[in-house]
């Protein structure tokens, strides 16, 4: 069709760290791609792997979870659980030969506005190279 590819990246961001980090990136006037569609969650562990699967199957080109650094969780251990679930999901994607690189987990604290912008830029670049998620076009999903 000759259309340029505008990736869409669903980002589940923890309210206390990563979302605040995104805010900081904004107030600091740091550029990050419009591909990122942030969804605020109370804790990264609120993100059932099923949310990621859903975003992936509904055509998100990339899915990002942003949480507090290990040890810094507002609820003490939420992000450790997130990490285990992410490992499970990655393993499933790996076993099924699905593109696990479309999933990303990042620890971004409230003060890391520049890191948030960097992660978003990097991830968007990577997804740009990967091309559109094949789930976008598949009618049998």
């Amino acid at each position: 069709m000759g259309k340029t590819f505008n990736p869409k990246i669903t980002a589940f961001l923890c309210k206390w760290c990563s979302y605040t980090g995104a805010d900081l990136a904004g107030t600091s006037r740091l550029q990050y791609p419009t591909a990122i569609i942030p969804i605020k969650v109370m804790c990264s562990s609120r993100v059932d792997p099923v949310f990621l699967i859903r975003a992936f199957l509904k055509g998100a080109d990339g899915v990002l979870i942003g949480g507090c650094h290990p040890g810094d969780c507002h609820y003490e251990s939420g992000n450790y659980h997130t990490r285990r679930r992410f490992a499970i999901l990655q393993s499933i994607f790996d076993s099924l030969n699905l593109e696990k690189d479309r999933l990303r987990l990042s620890w971004i604290s409230a003060s890391e506005g520049p890191k948030f912008a960097r992660v978003c830029n990097e991830f968007t670049d990577k997804i740009q190279k990967m091309g559109p998620n094949p789930t976008r076009k598949n009618m049998f999903i």
Partner: peptide, 9 residues
């Protein structure tokens, strides 16, 4: 705490 250090960055 010490597991999956490679995940998340």
């Amino acid at each position: 705490e010490e597991e999956f250090k490679e995940l998340g960055e």
